[in-house]
Write a protein that binds this DNA or RNA. Sequence first.
DNA 1: GTGGCACGTGGAGCGTGCTCCAGGTCAAGC
DNA 2: GCTTGACCTGGAGCACGCTCCACGTGCCAC
Lengths: 134, 134
Amino acid sequence: MTAYTPGQAAEETGFSLDTLRYYERIGLLEPIERNAVGQRRFSDGDIGWLGMIRCLRDTGMPIAEMLRFAELTRAGEHTISDRIALLAAHDQAVEDKIADLRRQQGAIQHKIQFYRDVLAIPDGLCERQDEPAS
Amino acid sequence: MTAYTPGQAAEETGFSLDTLRYYERIGLLEPIERNAVGQRRFSDGDIGWLGMIRCLRDTGMPIAEMLRFAELTRAGEHTISDRIALLAAHDQAVEDKIADLRRQQGAIQHKIQFYRDVLAIPDGLCERQDEPAS
DNA sequence: GTGGCACGTGGAGCGTGCTCCAGGTCAAGC
DNA sequence: GCTTGACCTGGAGCACGCTCCACGTGCCAC
């Protein structure tokens, strides 16, 4: 079982030192172990949990909901179905978000093509270009 | 050519009245036409532009970059290739974001499956469940 | 023993993107 | 003529998620 200094934990997880302290402060991390002089020593478990946090965060889960997940996790095995529900809802939210992004991306690509077409028109032939609605 | 009251424009575009005024204030919209008593009347062109804004906003473009796009658009046709470049870069950013979401979604689904497996283990057979790294 | 460095704490501050508020104008309806 | 409602303005305030700061400790190298 490795112990990570704050610097190593930051390196490993990609969170800044301040963010790690912040997450501990708000209870997203449970209190991190300390060495003799009071400095944090992150465990493998902490690093793993931070991986989960990063995953949830990067998929757009707000901190409040991550906190709820953290609390469920701490509360023990009887909360597993709640955790499944929470994650499944989030999974669906991510699915929806991706579908939305794809849709909007289509509009952007359409617009790019519109501009390309405008550029392709020889100068004299171009009376007046009005932009389409979106 | 229809004219939209602020309320209608909000309805049509999904932006709040305050947001519409805010966008005009910061220059994301050019100054909206006013009627005799100083109330805004949005044109079809405004509504179309707001559709573009919504599309860019919802795909995560920061306001500063939308402002740049707005300025290019106002500057005239000689900026079209710049606009293409801007939109193409954003299109790529959206593509990357989607790929990222898919990757992280995989991890979430993996975790859900892990929890489902835990639930499937009959009570006595379960010595101790440690969570995987993520 | 002096620097430099990695860490600690509590609390303030910040960037983004709105959102709200007080106080006022006009038009329409009762 | 009074209320209601949609709008106006300038400016303050807010939610979120960090990020920075001042000041202090302990350890190691020179």
